[in-house]
Simulated assay, not measured.
Amino acid sequence: MYSFNVKKLSVALIVISPMIAKAHDVESPSFLPESHAPAGVMSDHLHKQGEWMVGYRFMRENFSGLYYGSEKVTGAELNAAGYSMQPRSMAMEMHMLDIMYAVSDNLTLMLMPQTMSMDMTMKMTEGSHMHGDMAMDGMGAMGEMSTAEEAKPAMHASHSHGTSGIGDTVFAGLFRLADTSGYKLHTTLGISAPTGDVDLKNTDGTFTHYGMQLGSGTWDFMPSITYSSGRERLSWGAQASARLPMEDKNDSGFRFGERYAATAWSAYRLTNWLSLSSRLSYTKQLDINGHYNGPHNHSSPADLQKNYGGEFVDAAVGANMVPQGGALAGVRLGLEWSSRVSGHYNGYQLGRDDGLNMSLSYAF
């Protein structure tokens, strides 16, 4: 399984530094690296009237280890709960365009189309038995097995499956509420359009896991409010946000639960082109409402609505870089590594290990 850690982030910064060698300190920096939030925070800033910003965002999250509530559980315990398939690991990646245009100093419009990809590995739970014509999640029909001996080699065999494609598209307006010498405050009113598929199926014709569909399938309201401030080389900020489905169910018969989040960060400018940041976030995600309206499995925790959501706290460290001169002047690069501090998972779920956020943007 691919994973990230602080050491790898440090190596990445060392590799990138020569690329921006021309971004030496100047007496009054033209671009403040800490004026943007860490890479894992979206909708964090407005632009001046008539200004455009074009950016690219990347996110990867890794999951492993099976949890029930806050406790780690074994495959045998999962089997005793009635599941025959056990998720082992999962990786999720997002690629997003971040396009912004300032209608005025107090209103910036934003468009964020994205693609998603998810890959999961699974195996039979300890103590489970296969029967004739049994279907394994993501693999389709296994075929009839005449004896228990024939089934033995596959009982703990692993398999993997994945989905990828266009995700949901977000468009929003960022409205300035205050801009004083001491702090800035703005609100974001966003809408997520259901452009991602929610009807992806396994090879046997059953719906894949709810969490491996590419979108929500519903029109979602995405409000947030963001505060930022700073003094000399130090900056700080906070954001509260939500994702609220505006429909009872999607075309596949379900909807994801409401999501509420809050995050706070601080950053310190080491040089005119580099700032380092730390961030703490809290997320509450409700479970799934409704039910697939077509054939689907019940052999894995990811097949059941009650095994989604929970309350989580994550911590992150990162760096923002922006050259002050040369060909790359004004190009912003943000990197952030995050890890779960604590979590209480609804039902049985894979635990989140770590993740990487990256943002690259240029305003003109």
Rank of each mutant, 00 (worst) to 15 (best):
D251K: 15
G167M: 08
T187D: 04
G230E: 12
S224P: 07
R259D: 07
G215P: 15
G257H: 06
E150S: 06
L185Y: 01
A240P: 02
T163A: 15
F221W: 12
G237F: 03
F221G: 13
D168P: 15
S181I: 03
G162E: 09
E247I: 04
Q213D: 05
G237E: 06
K201C: 00
A154E: 11
M145P: 01
T187R: 05
A151W: 00
S146I: 02
A157Y: 00
D220W: 12
G230D: 11
L177R: 08
T203K: 15
L189S: 08
T188I: 04
Y227H: 08
P194W: 13
H161Q: 10
N250V: 03
G196S: 08
Y227V: 00
E150C: 00
G253K: 11
S235C: 03
Q239D: 02
I191G: 09
T147Y: 05
S235Q: 10
I191E: 01
R176I: 05
E150A: 12
K201F: 02
E144K: 14
T218F: 09
G173L: 06
S192D: 10
D220K: 10
E149A: 09
D199F: 00
G253I: 08
R233G: 01
F256I: 00
T147V: 02
G230C: 14
S160Y: 06
P194M: 13
L244R: 11
P223F: 04
D251V: 08
P223G: 02
T226M: 15
G196P: 15
L177M: 14
H209I: 00
E247S: 11
